[in-house]
């Protein structure tokens, strides 16, 4: 064995600007919160809106995280993602209605038990639907973006009609579990209990996803596959199986987002998934296609901005997120945390 000379070049210490570059998108969230504080000028209203924005952002993140991975890993534009949101909401709500004895009980434990059952059912059903969706609808159109858009939109329409067939065409109102109703008062601000739970739960999902992606071999394979799937295959991993797994997980997460969103709105319709998809697409695009961290920051920005602007200038709320997307794409055309593709 021969030892090689160590001709390692001495690296210059990067400037502060270069070192800060990856962290700039993260800083946008506190900057926006600060701007909100200054603009709203009423601390209690600001706190209420901030919690509401974070809750909304967390729910959008849960939905968008699977979609961004699916796009990053296999270049699949899935316009049918909204179907999993709606199905998740309907399945979860059906379970909650069936377990109304538990949800109506004045016991946090029983309420959480019912919620857990609803979440498991919603994720299991949407995961199974996702598996079928990938096999029947997505698999024949790999690599053909236009066909993907058309066929997945078709899949979405079929799914919405199936919801009409199973649950009927009318919207369903749902009451939150007893212990998640109402609000608490903190520093003079009224904070809905459910929104606080949604923020905590969304943060848990993000941490769990990050741990899986950063600390496990399967996470490593997914991250590498997003970047260069051909090389992952050449290393000996069956990327198609990985993709099916990610698609199922992404669908299940959309189902989870669906039940969270249903309890947030306290109303579900077959079109609810489709309606929220605009925000999901904005989050996926501004986050950087394939980037879970980018989707997380993007979702928080979208949720916070929507709530602040709706309070300050209600008419501008509808276009605020489009404006955010334009501004971020002008700053970083590939999104905030783009995944380098080979």
């Amino acid at each position: 064995m021969t030892a090689a000379p160590d001709h390692t070049p001495i690296l210059q210490r990067p400037s502060i600007r270069v070192r800060m570059e990856p962290w700039l998108p993260v800083l946008l969230v506190p900057v926006l919160v600060l701007l909100g504080f200054v603009s709203i000028a009423n601390p209690s209203s600001w706190l209420t809106l901030t919690v509401s924005g974070l809750a909304m952002g967390m729910m959008i993140f849960v939905i968008a995280s699977g979609m961004t991975l699916v796009f990053g890993l296999m270049d699949v534009i899935n316009f049918g993602h909204g179907a999993f949101i709606s199905f998740g909401a309907f399945v979860g709500v059906s379970v909650l209605i069936a377990l109304s004895a538990l949800t109506g009980a004045p016991s946090l434990m029983l309420n959480l038990l019912a919620l857990l059952a609803a979440v498991i059912a919603a994720m299991a059903v949407t995961g199974a639907i996702g598996w079928g969706f990938e096999r029947v609808i997505v698999r024949p159109v790999y690599g053909a973006h236009l066909k993907q858009i058309l066929v997945t939109m078709g899949g979405l329409i079929v799914a919405e009609q199936m919801i009409h067939v199973i649950w009927g065409p009318k919207e369903i109102f749902i009451a939150r579990p007893e212990m998640l109703k109402g609000s608490i008062t903190l520093f003079g601000a009224t904070l809905e209990k459910y929104r606080l739970v949604a923020v905590g739960f969304g943060a848990l999902v993000f941490i769990a996803m990050r741990l899986v992606l950063r600390r496990t071999k399967i996470g490593l394979i997914v991250r590498a596959g997003v970047e260069n799937r051909e090389m992952v295959q050449a290393l000996g991993y069956r990327i198609r199986r990985v993709f099916v797994g990610v698609f199922i997980a992404g669908s299940a997460l959309a189902g989870l987002g669906g039940i969270m969103w249903a309890l947030y709105q306290e109303l579900i319709t077959a079109h609810m998934g489709n309606e929220i998809m605009i925000l999901v697409f904005i989050v996926v695009i501004i986050g950087g296609l394939g980037s879970v961290e980018g989707a997380f920051i993007g979702a928080l920005l979208v949720g916070l901005l929507q709530n602040y602007v709706a309070y300050l200038e209600p008419k501008a709320a509808l276009i605020s997120n489009i404006g955010l997307m334009v501004a971020i794409l002008m700053w970083r055309p590939q999104g905030m945390s783009p995944v380098i593709k080979v």
């Binding site: 071999k217 970047e227 050449a234 080979v342």
Partner: peptide, 29 residues
């Protein structure tokens, strides 16, 4: 993947490095 599992390793012309992963993660993979 089956060919790799049969014992073939490739160093492609474009190197095929996973730029977002650390050196350690590239090797673990």
């Amino acid at each position: 993947a089956a060919i790799a599992q049969a014992g073939v390793a490739l160093v492609p012309e474009n190197m095929g490095i996973f730029a977002n992963l650390t050196v350690e993660e590239n090797m673990i993979l």
